[in-house]
Amino acid sequence: MEADTDTRDATGGDASLDILLRRRDIWRGGTPLPGGDALPTGHAALDDALGGGWPRGVLVELLTDLHGIGEVTLLLPLLAAQTDAGCHIAFVAPPHIPYAPALAQAGVCLERVLVITTQDDAETLWALEQALGSGACGVALAWPGRADTRALRRLQLAAERGRATGFLYRETRQAAHASPATVRLLLSPADAGLNIRILKRRRGWGGSVVVVPRVVGGVGK
């Protein structure tokens, strides 16, 4: 809304401001920047809300306290596309063992799936950093438990180095704390599916809410 008001002011008012605003290197938060290296999420509404899709080479935090609301299903289109493109995907310290038939139903190529189990949080963070920085994985999903800002910063650097997107499943109370993750989404169950509140995103403001319809094991329901 504010952005719209600004534009109207600019067009109706000072011409020099208008010229200034038309410069390519001036960006105003209201309009998402085109371009950028984004991976389609598989959900048109979410793509729009994230400015094209999941950014590549960053950390994405998915905040939820519940397992089983479709928090991984949300990523299945991305995982399928990644394995199709020849990248590996890694599950680091998952709460349960990923069930191969469900992944196969979603079109994920199982030969490119790595499951890494760890003993403690330190190992999880280390393994995730290795997976992100290796250049072999396109996407790594992790359930890191406790992670301080320094550890997250390291992960962010590893993701940049390996051009891999790291998805971290963390508790919702982390929303109150700052994080170096580029994208932060708050997930909650909704009647029609999964409710996604965007807390932070690249090239734009957070705050919007997207509902992704729920699918059950590849079959819309």
Partner: peptide, 21 residues
Amino acid sequence: QSLLDRLRARLGRDAVFGLAL
């Protein structure tokens, strides 16, 4: 290969596996 080697060296051989139907 090098990722697998590093992970297995630290976490143990069984800690890293793949999936099949």
